[in-house]
Design a protein around this nucleic acid. Sequence first.
RNA 1: GCCCAUGUGGCGCAGAGGUAGCGCACCCCCUUGGUAAGGGGGAGGCCACGAGUUCGAAUCUCGUCAUGGGCACCA
Length: 668
Amino acid sequence: MMPQSLAPQLEALTWTPVDKAEFSKLPKAEQLRRIRHSSAHVLASAIQTLRPDVQLAIGPATATGFFYDMKFPGEPLSETELDAIEKTMQAVAGRSAAFEIAELAKPEAIKLFEALDQPHKVEILNRIPAETVTLYRHQTPDKSYFIDLCAGPHVPHTGLCRAAKPLSLSAAHWHGELTPSLTRVAGTAWANEKDLAKYLEFLSASKARDHRTLGPQLDLFTFHPWAMAPMWHPNGFTLRQTLAAFWREMTEDAGYVEIFNPLLYRKALFETSGHWDHFRHNMFVFKNDHEACEHIEGKKEPEKESEGEADILALKPMNCPDTMLYFKSSLRSYRDLPMRVAEGQILHRNEPGGSIHGLMRTRSFIQDDAHIFLTGEQVETEVKSLLDMIDATYKAFDLEYSLKLSTRPENSMGELAVWEQAEAGLKSALEAAGFTPEDATTRDAPASEAAESVSRYYSIDPGEGAFYGPKIDVFVLDSLGRQWQCGTVQLDFQLPARFELKYADADGSLKQPIVVHRAVFGSFERFIGILIEHFGGLFPTWLAPVQAAVLPIGETHLEYAKTVKATLKKARIRTVLMDENTINYRVRQAETQKIPHIIVVGGREADEQSVTVRKARGGGKQQVFALSDFLAHMQDLVTNRTLDVEIERFDALFRAPAEAVMQDDEAY
RNA sequence: GCCCAUGUGGCGCAGAGGUAGCGCACCCCCUUGGUAAGGGGGAGGCCACGAGUUCGAAUCUCGUCAUGGGCACCA
């Protein structure tokens, strides 16, 4: 693997072992970060042993482990090789070989990595401004050295990387190239085998709360290869409707009106909005053609260039453009502003195949969408109250979230000055709502200090804004620690201009309003996916598709069971009667269906007009209520939207976002 | 869209170049008395789809579609 001719040159360098004493004094989190980054080196060395032709790119630490991007010029790497890689990694770790550093002038380093046939390393070197660079090496079981261009820092020896395991393999893009050229081998690494075992156990436990597992199991929805989106079953639809009612209540209380527009539009609408230029390839576009079937059947030749422009139709991918049409439908006054218009219609986006993911990303979905038309002076107050609404909503589900401010992207529309003004507006609204920008000091603060106020920070994502304006996004983690954007608040100066929106101001002059796009849940689909995992399928009573099950002990109690069910049903408590098979069997059925209240009635209950209630996930705990008291209790849970569930908290370690902790350039 | 992997009755899985098995669910009968599976019987699959190799393919090869893990994208 190492050309013999290079050996003298490398030996001539001064190799210094990583300081053990210094490492042992580091905080645990920093040690772990080094373990993970060093594990990437151990991985790379193992792969280089097995596949000497591998060309390495970057190998940073992540929130739960590490990855290394690499290229295989010959045969691609297969998942079946991961076992062999793991064994070799263990052999490398088993040697407890020292990590050693050497400094080298950049031109020398370039020559070295050219000789080693490592073109990506050469490319990285050419981007580094520094005069000298550092190399790290460790010995592999075959007594040769694995040498990597790397800023470090590392652990003292490979033995500290024994609780590491390669997990997956995927494609990765090298610095913005369109075609992926690299293979990413990702793995997990921990301070010790016990933590590793705990994490692996967490991964398999997460599978059980994955919404894609729980959804069909609880009869909420299923997927079908012919359907372009999830198919909602009665239980799932009930859940959606319950959530939608919550949304309507919220928006009505906050002074919104709701409109209802068609799904299908002539393309002129999207040309006006600008979406046609930016997103038409992700829209479902077709020709209004009564003879389409004949064309498909080959009975008719498609017409060439004769089609009228008006015949090109598209399914709407967002609610903004048609909401603009609503605003324009009559002359508006400054007295109407802020004008808050909600619309929860089905949206269709032709998302790339590989991005579709359960409920989290679908080709058809509904947003709890609304647009607010307002003046510049109203922006800060309105955005602040939106942030308050978001906070209240997420608290209602006991969901942890993080906020991200996304600024002007490369493909932005409009003037720079307007963008800057908009970004400043969002920042001051964030601050008015009590959020401060996250910087290095807050992020690295010990967890105990940061815990109380962690959601009071927001991060900044430069260049990630929409093409028409900056935005604040709300992110929530799924059961596997992946981040998903849910709520959003977006400023837009472009649509009002493109649609020539006007309102009459107090002095009678016509002025242009600003538009705020906002969603609190984001999409119902995604939010429900998050909720399923958050509650592990056992929803709080108010949300549960089936809120109570009535189980008569024996046949003689069926009449009373029916009375109980009728009483609850009459009060719109979603209740089912389960009267087939043994009582044990039915209790088990109700438990596995995660029905929050399992009501068992026998002779005693019938005599006393009472119910014995077993609370799901309560370990079989029972409570006896008078029927009327239980009804009042249920009504109370529903009207107050009480969070009557225990939410399982996973170790914060495992819930951390699966993002690279190190930046590319630190990690070379 | 990209790379790798996977696709076997509704679901979860086993098997494997000579034409398929288990558990749950489903249907029928009996059973139903106090909190997580009562008993017996039955039905259900051209092994994702299309082509190729072969005397013979569910099994091997190629393609398509779908799913999974990431990447890229995300109005």
